[in-house]
Amino acid sequence: MAQLETNKPTKVRVNKRRSNENLTGWLFAMPWVIGLLLFFGYPLLSSMYYSFTDFSILQSGEFIGLANYRELFQDDLFWISIYNTIYFAVFFVPLSIIFGVALAMVLNMKVKGMAVYRTIFFLPTLVPHVALAILWVWLLNPQFGLVNAMLGFVGIQGPPWLGSTFWSKPALILMSLWGIGQAVIIYLAGLSDISQEYYEAAEVDGATFLQKTFKITLPLLTPVIFFNLVMGFIGAFQQFTLPYAMTNGTGTPADSLTFYVMYLYDNAFSYFRMGYASAMAWILFLIILVLTSLVFWSSKKWVHYQGD
Rank of each mutant, 00 (worst) to 15 (best):
P219R: 06
L177K: 10
A67N: 11
K110D: 09
P243I: 09
G158H: 09
F214G: 03
S46M: 13
V303F: 03
Y244Q: 09
S195G: 03
S256V: 12
R70S: 08
V111S: 02
L174S: 14
I98R: 06
L140M: 15
D205L: 06
N84M: 11
T213H: 05
D193F: 07
T165P: 08
A104C: 01
S81H: 13
N22W: 07
I57F: 15
L177Q: 05
Q143A: 14
L229P: 10
L66N: 12
P9G: 01
G155Q: 09
V154R: 10
Y198H: 04
V147S: 06
N228P: 01
N228V: 09
T165M: 12
F99H: 02
R273E: 15
A201F: 02
W302E: 02
M48N: 11
T85I: 09
L162S: 13
V111I: 15
V137W: 09
S46T: 14
T250K: 15
A133V: 13
F296R: 01
M231Q: 09
P124G: 00
A245C: 05
T119P: 00
A183F: 08
E197G: 00
Q3F: 07
L177Y: 04
T125K: 01
S298W: 08
V12W: 07
Q157F: 05
M246D: 04
V303P: 01
F91L: 15
S46I: 10
Y244L: 04
A189L: 00
Y305D: 02
A171L: 05
